[in-house]
Design a binder for these strands. Structure first.
Length: 610
DNA sequence: ATAGGGTTAG
């Protein structure tokens, strides 16, 4: 069964013309039909106009009659519904499917009412549901096609592929894609952006190759999207292949393309090549190119290079935009130059030419948290709609300033917005619950989240926050039970998780178990760091457990983990009471004494909490 | 989807 394709209006017109010409040139009526035909010619039905159809659709009730009318129009050879008519039909069909529970029932009712179910009927239903984003019902229509013995044409399959992609059924979408007998330009132009937004590089590559092999070229916009996906993942080699295709298909290589390639090299871990390309690029770099450079240099600790790029921007008189402002806030924050980060934030927004966006707030909030100086003297982001990262950042900030109620409110707002909450969000949520002295609720929510959010990968932070909160609340045994359960259930844990558990054991005065855990973590392939050793060594000094202390200190030295001056000082103080035991450490202790500024350490000791 | 930018624990 061959169906007419009417993807775009031009195409429609073209096909209409073809239909007419075939009618007039090849149609030779049988003698007994001539009469009928000439009669028709004598009193021709006035052709349908979109205006007439639309006003009849609007007046028509009930829904079933409206649908029948709409279908009868579509059955006429040279009539195609316009956007208005389709949009009107969306609600009609949605109401009918609700009323009759399923598409199959709607079709049965149509048949009972004398409607002949032709391919075009199903195609129209499919298109209505497709435009109305009613994906599950669109799928039902598609299934209905094969039940009626119709083989869907390219257009129907393109639509179905789009529906399946939008319903996030990527594999089924690709099955449809592969099943299309003769793919057209749109088959590819639909598949590519979906695969791009899914960051599915392998399939983007495969589909792009097929597209070219089958004689189609993406337009400039689509090329840019594909290039963006490759560069965004640091696949510059593929990026250059795409650029080659762009050139050969006559799409001009803009400064955007160069900018993408430059940032692509940074992302692929090749800052040198990024710079080479920047120096060789075939057009004048713009603010975006410089922003890529500045960010890239900072990512590789090339601070001088980053600032010389900033100076070039200034000397060229390029006015910073909000993205560059955000990058600068981030840059100063990373360098610990918090005051300058604030100045960029405050000065850039003062004039009102630039408006802070979600990135700005996420960055400055994090900057305030890192600097531990929370008072910016402005209210934050009340007019900016929350997005995922800004919300996460805000929850984190509010927890840090102790406003847990506000943090929980942000969490609630985020949940109501149906953002795809991630492990940052849930970690912040648990922190707020614990700090708001609702640890029981937090623990219940913790288990709930694990049970119900199997699609979110919960990382070590998530588990660690819960364990640490319990420790901080003095619930040592609950904390340790939770930690052990994480081990059993093979949740992701890292050195911080183990350190927190060690801290719980130390605080719970279970020093022997703390030492066993130290050994166990190494067996588990998690290497203790200076904070782990600091935690356990402080505990051993407190417990005055000289023998275990000596053993752990030796391990620490042998593993080459450098302790902080404070902890060194504690060890020196404690062991100095046992001169004989100090002998074996003498060379190490000599060095330590150089590092430990005694007057300073006394001060630090008084505020140290371990 | 629309060049370049953002968030978490001991």
């Amino acid at each position: 069964m061959l169906w007419r394709s009417n993807w775009v209006k031009q195409r429609r017109k073209l096909i209409n013309t073809l239909c007419f010409s075939s009618l007039h040139t090849h149609f030779s009526p049988k003698p007994n039909q001539i009469n009928e035909l000439s009669q028709q010619r004598a009193s021709p039905k006035p052709p349908l106009t979109h205006e007439d159809v639309y006003s009849r659709l609007q007046e028509s009730t009930p829904d079933l009659k409206t649908l029948t009318f709409s279908l009868s129009c579509a059955k006429q050879n040279n009539y195609f519904h316009d956007d208005r008519a389709f949009n009107h039909m969306v609600n009609v069909v949605v109401r009918l499917t609700h009323q009759h529970k399923s598409i199959d029932r709607v079709i049965e009712v149509l048949i009972v009412n004398g409607c002949v179910i032709k391919p075009r009927v199903l195609l129209l239903l499919l298109e209505i549901l497709w435009r109305g984003h009613v994906y599950d019902k669109a799928i039902e229509v598609y299934k209905g096609m094969s039940r009626f013995g119709y083989v869907p044409n390219t257009r129907a399959m393109n639509m179905m592929m789009d529906v399946l992609f939008k319903a996030n059924l990527v594999d089924r979408a690709l099955e449809v894609f592969e099943g299309i007998g003769v793919r057209n330009f749109f088959s590819f132009d639909i598949a590519l952006p979906h695969l791009c937004s899914g960051k599915d590089l392998v399939r983007v590559k495969v589909v792009l190759k097929m597209m070219i092999r089958e004689g189609f070229y993406p337009n400039g916009e689509r090329f840019g999207q594909v290039l963006g996906v490759f560069c965004g993942r640091g696949c510059v080699a593929e990026g250059f292949q795409v650029v080659g295709l762009m050139i050969s298909s006559g799409v001009s290589v803009s400064v955007n393309v160069w900018s993408m390639l430059v940032s692509g090299f940074f992302r692929s871990g090749e800052p040198r090549k990024a710079v080479d390309l920047f120096n060789k690029m075939g057009c004048e770099p713009n603010l975006v190119t410089y922003t890529s450079l500045i960010k890239g240099f900072m990512d590789y600790g090339m601070v001088d290079e980053a600032f010389s790029a900033v100076r070039i921007v200034q000397s060229k008189g390029l006015a910073p935009d909000i993205v560059l402002v955000n990058v600068m806030i981030h840059t100063f924050t990373r360098l610990g130059r918090f005051q300058e980060a604030r100045n960029v934030f405050l000065n850039s927004l003062k004039k009102g030419e630039l408006v802070a966006d979600q990135y700005t707030f996420a960055t400055i909030l994090s900057s305030l948290c890192v600097s531990r100086d929370f008072d910016l003297g402005i209210t934050i982001g009340t007019e900016t709609e929350l997005d995922l990262v800004m919300g996460n950042s805000l929850i984190n900030y509010l927890c840090k300033v102790g406003n847990t109620l506000a943090a929980l409110k942000v969490f609630r707002d985020m949940s109501n917005k149906d953002l795809a909450l991630d492990c940052y969000t849930y970690t912040g949520f648990l922190t707020a619950l614990c700090q708001g002295e609702a640890p029981r609720d937090a623990l219940n929510m913790y288990y709930e989240i694990i049970k119900r959010k199997k699609n979110i990968s919960l990382d070590a932070h998530f588990h660690t926050v819960m364990i640490d909160s319990l420790v901080e609340l003095g619930e040592y045994s609950t904390a340790i039970r939770l930690f052990n359960r994480c081990i059993l259930e093979k949740h992701e844990l890292d050195v911080v998780s183990y350190t927190v558990a060690v801290k719980g054991l130390v605080r719970g005065r279970r020093i022997e178990e703390a030492c066993s855990l130290l050994s166990k973590m190494k067996e588990d392939g998690v290497m203790p760091n200076r904070r782990t050793y600091r935690t356990i060594i402080s505990g051993l000094c407190e417990e005055k457990d000289k023998d275990r202390l000596k053993k752990v200190v030796w391990e620490c030295i042998e593993e080459g983990v450098e302790l902080d001056p404070n902890t060194k000082f504690k060890v020196l103080c404690f062991l100095s009471r046992y001169p004989k035991d100090c002998y074996e450490f003498r060379s190490v202790f000599e060095k330590w004494k150089e590092d430990v500024d005694v007057s300073n350490s006394y001060n630090e000791l008084s505020i140290s909490t371990g």
